[in-house]
Write a protein that binds this DNA or RNA. Structure first.
Lengths: 189, 189
DNA sequence: GTCTATACACGGATAGAC
DNA sequence: GTCTATCCGTGTATAGAC
């Protein structure tokens, strides 16, 4: 039972709305994005926006999804390009690199990741990295490593580095990433 | 010229409002606290709340301040109780310990720290720990350590550990703290 | 000095006109 | 399929009761 194919206008409008929403969040922050602002920047009325999305949150969620998918895709490619032992470090570098390359996406991602969305458990955030860590330590022959904690620590550290760079564009997030990978490497034995 | 002494009722009401606000945030999250809810839980009207505080944000800010002051005080005592070399580790332990002891304060703190308040630069967050790290490495005779980055990484890691515990009260944040202090110790040379 | 009543502006959501 | 009119909730300002 395939759902109805969306029309051309439908897809165009949704893409446009996602685009202006990402922009609005980058400019004014997650909390201050109003439906009116999104509608205004898209050149339509509030109700017209709510025709294409059920609620305002759905618009923002879609924009977040878009940005997140780009990140996940990018990181996945980078991670798979290297040897199993080096994947956790590649994860860190790819994450920071992607956000440096897509500065407009940064604020959206960090402000959302910080918040607690009912439907996204924190596990979804650390599980992928924890799996990479498990595989890496297995390949190294080390053991006794708590991959969950290591992934949580590393993820939090990445957030903090990115946040710092968002406020100070002179901050060298690549160098910070190297410090982090070094610490991670040592912790994995 | 000293500012006017606040009356008994004034101090009592403010304390009560701060209390119900902390509770409301712990229950429903930072974003969903409305002035109406605060007023309701305190048994007065919205306007009465705004008599004691200029705006809704001022109420929430005061509640945040209250919770933050308790944390800072607690951590400062713990840090000063130990030797200079061990202070960064004591900072981590005290931070996690305090949040374990005041679970009702946790959500308030992390949701606020995540957000970007215009008046609070991120430096205020990492500077104290960076100073402890600087003093510690000086005492150890190590050098070449980027204390800013190390503080940012550690602070982000603490946030992530606390967030995880907020969602899974079975999670052993003390053990995670030990992993973190070990990593920090290694990074300081 | 402390509070209630009321009124307004704005944001989000819905019903129904076109 | 798109937008107008409208409604409800939230934050804020003012007047005035006690």
């Amino acid at each position: 039972m395939a759902t109805k194919e969306p029309s051309f206008i439908e897809r165009t409008r949704r893409a446009q709305l996602i685009d202006v929403t990402i922009d609005a969040v980058a400019r004014h922050g997650y909390a201050k994005v109003s439906l009116a602002r999104i509608a205004d920047n898209a050149g339509i009325t509030k109700a017209a926006v709510l025709y294409h999305f059920r609620t305002k949150d759905a618009v923002v969620e879609a924009a977040y999804r878009f940005v997140l998918d780009a990140l996940v895709e990018d990181v996945a490619v980078a991670v798979e390009a290297v040897d199993v032992q080096e994947r956790p470090q590649a994860y860190v570098r790819a994450m920071l690199g992607h956000l440096r390359a897509h500065r407009g996406h940064t604020r959206m991602l960090i402000e959302r990741l910080g918040n607690i969305a009912p439907e996204h458990t924190p596990e979804q955030r650390w599980r992928p990295l924890a799996d990479l860590i498990d595989a890496s330590v297995r390949a190294r022959g080390t053991d006794g490593v708590d991959s969950r904690t290591l992934a949580i620590i590393t993820g939090g550290a990445i957030d903090a580095i990115v946040t710092e760079r968002l406020h100070d564009s002179e901050y060298d997030s690549a160098a910070a990433g190297e410090s982090l990978t070094t610490m991670l490497d040592a912790a994995m034995g």
